[in-house]
């Protein structure tokens, strides 16, 4: 069988995925993925934030972003921490924000270690197939980051300011973010 073809999420993705952003009162008012933290979660609290820009530098004000990450110990099976979050970009500024924890390094079956990272997936009007990237917190070593051409590597590294980590996304242009087909 062949994978179903992707189609753009369109400008009204909010209705289905983050209804409160559409101005729609559904599912008892709770948007799925809006809140990643609870008092039970252990780990360093961080705010991952940034702005998505298109090729003209304009903010992308209709995007939906999802993130998927390990817990502070590098695990994906923590009952206290789902590790998944979902936010819309701001309708005026294109800004997004996730309150989460800093993930730990992830050890693979073969013992390889991936530096702490957060997987990020972006959909919007004009994006035909969701864009996947990885947010890193320093420049490695990491088996994925190390293979990205050095000139583009910085697009994958969040800029730290205390608990705030800034990660701007450029869909196109001189600062184009590295996206992955994985």
């Amino acid at each position: 069988m062949k994978e179903t073809a992707s189609q753009t999420a369109g400008p009204y993705v909010h209705i289905g995925c983050v209804p409160s952003v559409a101005g729609l009162e559904m599912y008892r008012g709770q948007d799925l993925g809006a809140k990643m933290l609870s008092p039970d979660v252990t780990g360093e609290r961080i705010t991952l934030h940034g702005v998505i820009h298109d090729g003209s530098g304009a903010p992308v004000t209709d995007a939906m972003i999802e993130i998927w990450q390990a817990d502070a110990e590098g695990r994906f099976d923590n009952p206290a921490f789902l590790g998944w979050g979902r936010q819309a970009t701001d309708a005026q500024t294109g800004a997004f924000r996730f309150d989460t924890i800093l993930p730990g390094p992830v050890t693979q079956d073969d013992g390889t270690r991936h530096a702490p990272h957060i997987l990020m997936w972006i959909v919007a009007r004009g994006i035909n197939l969701g864009l996947m990237t990885r947010v890193y917190f320093d420049d490695g070593p990491d088996p994925v980051l190390d293979q990205v051409p050095a000139a583009r590597r910085q697009t994958l590294i969040a800029q730290r300011d205390g608990p705030k980590l800034r990660f701007d996304v450029h869909l196109q242009g001189a600062q184009e973010t590295v996206f992955f087909d994985v």
């Binding site: 753009t8 298109d54 090729g55 003209s56 304009a58 992308v60 998927w68 990450q69 390990a70 994906f76 789902l82 590790g83 998944w84 992830v106 693979q108 079956d109 390889t112 991936h114 990272h117 997987l119 919007a124 009007r125 004009g126 994006i127 035909n128 864009l131 996947m132 990885r134 088996p143 994925v144 293979q147 990205v148 583009r152 869909l171 196109q172 242009g173 184009e176 973010t177 590295v178 996206f179 992955f180 087909d181 994985v182």
Partner: peptide, 27 residues
């Protein structure tokens, strides 16, 4: 022909790497 893609399509081909535990798990 789908105009919104013109300023929102990355111009670089996406890079491919061997999927890891992060990509093989999900919520």
């Amino acid at each position: 022909a789908y105009r919104s893609s013109q300023l929102r399509a990355p111009s670089h081909k996406p890079l491919r790497y061997a999927p890891s535990r992060t990509e093989a798990t999900g919520p």
